[in-house]
Simulated scan of single mutants.
Amino acid sequence: MMTNLFSIFDPSTNIFNLSLNWLSTLLSFIFMPYIYWLIPNRYIIFWNFIMFKLHNEFKILLKNNKIFNSTFIFISLFMFILFNNFLGLFPYIFTSTSHLTISLSLSLSLWISFMMFGWINNTQHMFSHLIPHGTPNMLMPFMVTIETISNIIRPGTLAIRLTANMIAGHLLITLLGNSSSSIPFYLIYMLIFIQILLLILESAVAIIQSYVISILSTLYSSETN
């Protein structure tokens, strides 16, 4: 039962031995704002409003960063994860963010770039982060060990947080959907209502998780400056 349940996340769709599941990740670029249109429509105005709000919020977190436009890398990360989370809610579309292949690749590449930039350009500042202000001398070795471990596991926690939340919601929806053939007819309407509520919850989770990943990435970046 467990093998069949988790098999919904297997990238098994293929044509001529070519895996087509990962193409859902590329579909997000179709829905990106068409910035080259001469006359903005409501769709472009809506996305410009979201980008402007995210830019102002990320700019506050990156107040020590001299590069003003560095917030757009985190805005792009937010949009990429958001689109892929939403695409996974549609039937027969592969959920790429439910795999560590995508989430760990994003978080690990960002974390490595932040660490390389921080230790090369701001070495003294990075060392100061290992020992919080006011730490007693006896506790300094333990604090360095704890801070180092917490820093190393950051990309893993980012990836697992996104993957686990995507898997949990999809598994619950799948379990309820598979039980529809074995319940009485008068409970079908209740099951449909519960499924609709779960889809609304998963839509909120898709937005929240993409926002959390981008905010945490911004905070990790601000610590290296």
Rank of each mutant, 00 (worst) to 15 (best):
Thr13Leu: 11
Ile39Gly: 03
Ala168His: 05
Phe86Gln: 00
Ile213Gly: 01
Ser113Glu: 12
Thr3Asn: 10
Glu57Ser: 12
Ile173Asn: 04
Ile73Tyr: 06
Gln124Ala: 03
Ala168Pro: 08
Ile35Arg: 15
Phe142Glu: 11
Phe49Pro: 12
Thr135Asp: 05
Thr218Val: 05
Asn85Asp: 07
Tyr92Asp: 08
Leu171Cys: 06
Leu26Ile: 13
Ser107Gly: 08
Ser98Tyr: 02
Tyr220Gly: 06
Ser113Met: 13
Asn85Met: 10
Asn41Ala: 12
Ser222Thr: 03
Ser19Gly: 14
Leu20Ile: 08
His133Tyr: 06
Ser221Ile: 07
Gln195Lys: 02
Leu201His: 02
Leu197Arg: 02
Ile44Glu: 08
Ser24Leu: 02
Ser203Thr: 13
Gln209Pro: 00
Leu62Lys: 08
Trp22Phe: 09
Thr157Gln: 06
Glu147Trp: 15
Asn48Arg: 08
Phe6Gly: 02
Ala206Ser: 11
Pro132Tyr: 14
Arg42Thr: 10
Ile131Lys: 00
Ile93Arg: 01
Ile153Ala: 06
Phe94His: 01
Ile39Thr: 01
Thr13Glu: 02
Ser105Pro: 03
Asn14Phe: 03
Gly156Gln: 14
Met115Ser: 13
Tyr43Ile: 09
Ile50Met: 12
Ser180Phe: 04
His170Ile: 15
His99Phe: 11
Met190Phe: 05
Ile194Ala: 11
Ile131Gln: 01
Ile160Met: 10
Trp37Tyr: 10
Ile112Asn: 03
Pro141Glu: 11
Leu197Ser: 06
Phe49Ser: 14
Ile120Arg: 03
Thr145Tyr: 05
Thr148Leu: 06
Phe16His: 12
Tyr189Val: 10
Ser179Cys: 01
Ile152Glu: 12
Tyr186Asn: 00
Asn121Leu: 07
